[in-house]
Design a protein around this nucleic acid. Structure first.
Lengths: 240, 240
DNA sequence: TGCAAGCAAATTGTATCCAATTGACGAAAA
DNA sequence: TTTTCGTCAATTGGATACAATTTGCTTGCA
């Protein structure tokens, strides 16, 4: 109730559609940070009364989340947190690599003055939570890539990268063994260095390797601790 | 009224959310085919009573269209058919080239058996309307690229390409001088040939050139006959 | 005549209400 | 015991009603 209203007030100035946006944002974060686990149901009125808004609002937010691939809806059945199949996961990673390579290519051509500062600041904040395994680090890792995309100045590209990175975060939470990959933070620094050197070739190589490693971790079997997501996988078959 | 209901029945079997989907599809086509011109207002209840559905449905459809970049909404002001600026247009084309190059790369690796048949059938249908300048040819030209993306089997990629091609269609309708570009159809054939030869390098070159030509036509000044879109550009500044 | 304040019309933002569909449970028959 | 059919609860699909905000116009005043 107050949650949504407060976030609404905060985002009101910079955005619009306050309540819908607020719920949308709230749900998205909850999904990425695994508060809402893949396969979990999202009944409209439950979510609505949780946030103190009407179903109408939740409904709109769910429509958006479905467009973003973070939830799926089944007719007259409701919305669920998406459980990307391994095939879909691979597709997502394929597109991600394609888009991020373009990001790198563009950044090597031109990067705003404040770019390096912002990137390095972000890496520092990543290092601060390096020890802790968990949702925060996975979110920050994603935001690094989103920041890269935003620095290109191409808003369309940035929006797609943002979307696809979020989907990757969801996928990682399903399949990856450990998100707290110290190497990832290190690789982020390497990427910055390569861009700074203007060496597009090498930067893309690093990014490819970086994403490959990320995708590689996702190639493994589902995480041992997310029993329910495994069960819901089977359940998806049983319950039609 | 009957329009939406009929299309709803048609798409009901293969999709879900019948009415919303129907209105969404209807509006999208109307925009691409320039029945609804850029800058035009889309009041919820007007559209709703036109199709015989309630504002709720229209609203959902508009939310989706906004996500797709085909309409923009301003708080308490309503929805408008998007009028991409030239800068945004360039961004869109940039992303499009990136994605379509990936499509080509994938198709050169693997293409389903029925692929060539479907592509050639499409080119034939393009040739059928070659003479006529107008919305149909612009739509078909876009659908060729969407078909290419679908043949990759990567649904995520196909969805993004589809979205971006539609935006390009809108952009072309705003800026391009003549859509009936005989060369385009010819280049489509060349692309098929290059893929068939498995020559990824050459196929990408052709595609690059093809998209470059498309983007080039869009680089020109707004079409002379779309006075209102020019005025609305200025109006965008005047009306706050 | 020009500007400002205020009022009215229109349109969106949100909530609530009714109908339709689905899934589950249970009972009855094979 | 198993399978099938029917009823019921739960949840979404869609429409309508109400509130809030914006816009444009009118009116009054300098």
């Amino acid at each position: 109730m107050t949650d949504a209203k407060m976030l609404a007030d905060k985002t009101m100035s910079e955005n619009k559609n306050t309540l819908t946006n607020a719920v949308h944002e709230l749900l998205r974060r909850a999904i990425i940070e695994q508060a809402l686990k893949p396969g979990m149901r999202l009944p409209e009125d439950t979510v609505g009364e949780q946030f103190g808004v009407s179903r109408t609002i939740v409904r709109h937010a769910l429509v958006r989340l479905e467009n973003e691939g973070l939830v799926i809806t089944r007719r007259n059945r409701g919305a669920f947190v998406a459980e990307p199949s391994k095939e879909e996961a691979q597709h997502v990673f394929e597109v991600r690599r394609c888009l991020e390579n373009e990001v790198i290519r563009l950044l090597c051509q031109r990067i705003p003055d404040s770019g390096y500062d912002r990137l390095e600041a972000h890496v520092r904040s990543e290092e601060n939570v390096k020890g802790k395994d968990g949702p925060v680090s996975i979110r920050l890792a994603g935001e690094f890539h989103i920041l890269l995309a935003e620095l290109t100045g191409n808003e369309v590209l940035a929006r797609y990268v943002s979307e696809i990175v979020l989907r990757c975060s969801l996928i990682m939470s399903l399949y990856a063994r450990n998100h707290s990959s110290d190497c990832a933070v290190d690789e982020h620094s390497q990427i910055i260095a390569a861009i700074r050197a203007g060496d597009a070739e090498r930067a893309i190589d690093i990014m490819d390797h970086h994403l490959g490693a990320v995708a590689g971790r996702a190639e493994l079997s589902p995480r041992p601790d997310s029993i329910q997501s495994i069960l819901s996988h089977y359940g998806k078959e049983l319950a039609h």
